[in-house]
Amino acid sequence: MKQRSYLALEDIAVSFPTRNGPFTALQKVNLSIEKGEFVALIGHSGCGKSTLLNIIAGLVKASRGVVFLDGDVIDSPGPDRAVIFQDHSLLPWLSVEENVRLAVDRTMKKASKAERRDWVMHNLDLVQMAGSAAKRPGELSGGMKQRVGIARAIAMQPRVLLMDEPFGALDALTRASLQDAVMAIQAKLNNTVVMITHDVDEAVLLADRVLMMTNGPAATIGEDLAIKLERPRNRIEAAEMADYNHARHEILQFLHQRYSNPLDKAV
């Protein structure tokens, strides 16, 4: 038997029943991700990126194929695959601390109250939000909310961290500061991460590998590009590097020439 990767998707396909017969969103998706790898998934809207992420999360069931995580078959959601949602999804009736606490209570059942509390604060500290622990999400800016969303996810100590366009709703400056925060945290924790993004620079800056998705229907992974940039990466220095610009160019070519936005063709 061949050795499987830490996270392995084998022959995944997803189709939905519609009025005009079954619609195939994803097809023949094969993917191997090693432990500690940071993988970005890029593609046009509607290509099925989120569906793919939700399959790994267990929120969507694949019509065929199997997802293996460290040898286990994945078929339902669980706290070992923490998701950072685009809209942060903090529960507005809980404080920042309670939001993270809810996740910690589910994942550290054996720990004492004090240990859990310390763990919550430690993770809020990692995203520089310890000072706002008592606030409600409604009192925070979008960037701060997403920092808490990140803290909640990493506090769960997941086997895979799934990020669904985590910074898509933020302005460019806030996005940059959160990207830096994610890079700093990743340097410490070395999580296995799958991140969906629309942003080419974000993909190149953060990821070890960029997976480019073809357009739907029956979308699949069209290209798998390794980003060989030294870490720690600095956005200003990286912009001058040949490797960075080469990777950027490859992705842009894929997205805008080989698989340009299906809506552009229609116009």
Partner: peptide, 24 residues
Amino acid sequence: TYRNVGKVLALNPWQQFTKIILPA
């Protein structure tokens, strides 16, 4: 997304009810 939070945290039906559905 609130329900998804409950699913990702694998809350049992009672917790899903008291932690998510009722307060929401």
